[in-house]
Design a protein around this nucleic acid. Structure first.
Lengths: 199, 199
DNA sequence: GTCTATATGTAGATAGAC
DNA sequence: GTCTATCTACATATAGAC
């Protein structure tokens, strides 16, 4: 999935993908700033120079695996904007968000974002993603503009994320985590727009 | 407050405190790893060597302002452990947590933790704080051991934190943020232990 | 208590051979 | 496509003068 968009003309998509995978893991586990290109190269059994053949800089590696996540978020936002601000569509929006989070190659990329919030402030990919998270939260809060609704929306999204680490038992399946997070997200979201609904 | 524990014999507590304040701000805004001692020194109008007179290393600066937060958390945990696992004591626990968060010199230290989770993994102060956060969450989940209760507890704590950044309007007062976060924390926590209560 | 000067390491990144 | 070798910059940290 990581090298999916790549043209076939670039023959050895293998090394490129392996760089992305290792970088994503290390960036998530020990942080973007602390992870050196030397470390990534060593883990792969190549030299730093090889990395620079595939990516022109360190933050380009980040961009490469963040790109398609941004694309998915854009689809989600576009869909959400076309929906009426009802309990139903709020629920569906968070369900779709959770699908992205738990789907495809697991939650690796989202965990990377979570763990590198600060470092990502100075990376373009980080700013792009940040803006989209805020947009999704705003869509969830609609039609309310109250501060409480804003926090409810943020908590609903965080429910999806936190089910990953707050449940420390590693034997719990992704599906179980997903269900718990959605139950709590519903609980939080369903109280949004009650005044508007009643009116 | 930052240099409170300091002995009076150390005459110029001023510079030491100013280093802590500037470091805390920069570590929070742009990240621990990315912030250099040169940057901190320049901002204060001194040289790096001066910093090393007051602190023997970079992570010692972190320890210095984290220490008393750890102490407060320990008091909180000790108090919590002595309470019965009821709706009432759960509420009071999160109220006290919020007091720590919003109290004293604002939420600066807690924001620093939030923004540097990954970097703090390799710092002793980080590991210490992390363990205490988990302990508080466990106390909130009692007497339940269900996964859902664990997520409820984590979300309740995050409600306190998120009220700081999820409400983007800067004119909202700390008191308003505190009230909103507690309302939502109650909502989440009050459903813990319902089976045990009923039994 | 703060300075100048410097030691020492490692980071990201490039040139050019193979 | 990957290598060796190297550049440049900046990091943390220390020694010793004032």
């Amino acid at each position: 999935m990581l090298g999916k968009v790549m043209k076939v003309s670039e023959s050895t998509g293998d090394t490129r993908s392996r760089i992305q995978a290792v970088a994503l893991e290390l960036f998530t586990e020990e942080g973007y700033e602390k992870t050196s290109l030397r470390e990534i190269a060593e883990r792969l059994g190549v030299t730093k120079a090889a990395l620079y053949y595939h990516f022109k800089s360190k933050d380009e590696i980040v961009n490469s695996f963040v790109e398609d996540r941004i694309g998915l978020m854009d689809e989600l936002i576009e869909w959400g904007e076309a929906q009426p601000p009802t309990v139903e569509s709020r629920r569906t929006l968070v369900v779709r968000y959770a699908e992205q989070f738990f789907g495809t190659n697991r939650h690796t990329v989202m965990r990377f974002f979570e763990q590198n919030q600060t470092a990502l402030k100075s990376l373009s990919a980080g700013k792009e993603m940040r803006a989209r998270m805020i947009r999704v939260a705003d869509l969830l809060a609609r039609p309310e503009t109250s501060h409480e609704a804003q926090v409810r929306a943020a908590l609903a999204l965080f429910a999806v994320h936190s089910s990953w680490f707050a449940i420390r038992d590693p034997s719990v399946t992704d599906e179980d985590r997903r269900q718990i997070s959605l139950k709590l997200a519903y609980e939080l979201l369903d109280k949004i727009g009650e005044t508007a609904q009643a009116a």
